[in-house]
């Protein structure tokens, strides 16, 4: 009889799945399996019979796993959401990080906690990466808009690029608006007028 825990990670993205595996490896020697498909999820989980299921809360297939908490057949191992068995702090931390964990009934919380802590840390990293990516994308888009606004001013008022930027910046400051918003308004107005 082995003491290893079987952990199932539901994650369609290979890189993310590997990152989760790496972070869990540090918490001990586990059987870790990854499921990438979202079809037939409930059946696969029943077949693999894991002790713990981890998945991203943003994954719409979470409802299929959640439905397993109702498993009533005597052949099925009842699954519970980890939040049931733990203190509120850990629950909140998991949900804020965006990870949902399901454990098989009767599992000792102290065996799961270090694993969940590692998963929470990893998911926090994911969400930071997501925010950074979004911020970078926004910055790029804003720069594009500002460039277009500068172009419009340069043509319409026959001014240099530096003067055009200075004018947008001055207007933004005097109106208490963001430079990108003033630029956007100028671009929209010029589209309407042309």
């Amino acid at each position: 009889m082995t003491d290893k825990l079987t952990i199932l990670i539901v994650e369609p993205d290979k890189t993310r799945a590997q990152a989760i595996i790496d972070s869990l490896a540090a918490t001990g020697d586990h059987h870790i399996r990854v499921l990438s498909a979202s079809t037939g999820l409930a059946r696969s989980v029943a077949e693999m019979n894991p002790d713990l299921v981890l998945l991203d809360m943003a994954n719409p297939s979470r409802d299929a796993i959640d439905a397993l908490t109702l498993a009533s057949s005597p052949l099925e191992r009842p699954v519970a959401m980890f939040v049931d068995r733990s203190d509120d702090g850990l629950t909140k931390a998991a949900i804020e990080a965006g990870v949902s964990a399901y454990v098989v009934d009767g599992m000792q919380p102290d065996r799961i906690k270090p694993i969940l802590d590692a998963a929470i840390a990893r998911f926090h990293m994911f969400s930071r990466m997501r925010s950074e990516l979004a911020a970078t994308k926004r910055a790029l888009e804003e720069r594009k808009i500002i460039d277009r606004a500068k172009g419009i001013l340069m043509r319409a008022r026959n001014m240099s690029e530096d003067d055009a930027y200075a004018l947008i910046r001055k207007t933004a400051m005097s109106q208490g608006k963001k430079i990108a918003d003033v630029a956007q308004a100028l671009v929209t107005a010029s589209e309407l007028l042309s």
Partner: peptide, 15 residues
């Protein structure tokens, strides 16, 4: 919300 269980949990935990 991405799923009903996530919506339920967000409400239950006061998010």
């Amino acid at each position: 919300a991405p799923s009903w269980s996530t919506l339920r949990d967000r409400l239950a935990l006061g998010q």
